[in-house]
Nucleic acid binder design. Sequence first.
DNA 1: TTGACAGGCAACTGTTTAGTTGCATATTAT
DNA 2: ATAATATGCAACTAAACAGTTGCCTGTCAA
Lengths: 107, 107
Amino acid sequence: MSMDAVFKALADPTRRRLLDRLRARNGQSLSELCEHAVMTRQAVTKHLAILEAANLVATEKRGREKLHYLNPIPINEIADRWIGKYERPRLRALAELKKNLEAEGNE
Amino acid sequence: MSMDAVFKALADPTRRRLLDRLRARNGQSLSELCEHAVMTRQAVTKHLAILEAANLVATEKRGREKLHYLNPIPINEIADRWIGKYERPRLRALAELKKNLEAEGNE
DNA sequence: TTGACAGGCAACTGTTTAGTTGCATATTAT
DNA sequence: ATAATATGCAACTAAACAGTTGCCTGTCAA
């Protein structure tokens, strides 16, 4: 939803790792996501709640388990709407750099 | 440099606004960047230091002024190396969604 | 050379955040 | 029924963070 929530959710390396694990295998339960984690289950729960609030993860209750699904759409929206704005200045900067290098070569 | 520093730098709306202002006009001094800001100059200085540490902003001393330049390259690196990883699952998810909708239509 | 302008540095405050411990609830298997 | 499993909820702690105030230094202009 809010772009700020997505940026803030992506700011934490633990949360990015959780997204990576879901990308590797979607639909994992909380316990599965806690395996090999260096923190408590409750901490992982909080991280997942933040990801869910940012709409980066969707959940589904299956019996006593809670399955987690990656939603990559907000990430792509950021890529399109925000990062896209920075492509043009990058190209401009590269062109300018090239120009400066050529100018130096002429000295 | 470190991807984490870039993500953390982008997590703050004030810092994203500073990047936007530099994108609109590059090479602004600290005082210029403070205009219309709702916080003190010292606060803006700290935000710019974080952006500089993340290599998103480069600076140059010009007399008594300090000019700030946008460096969009780390943003594009994140787009390419990290966000790019999430394009494939998005397409997969959309394909699956389409399949499910078609299946519902057959019921 | 004095004053105004641009910026740097440091200490302090309030809030947010990441993580913990402890306990409660719901579901499955024996 | 009972025990084990899977998760939820709440209170607490320590560290990080955003922002402030106060003061100092360097540069330019009159």
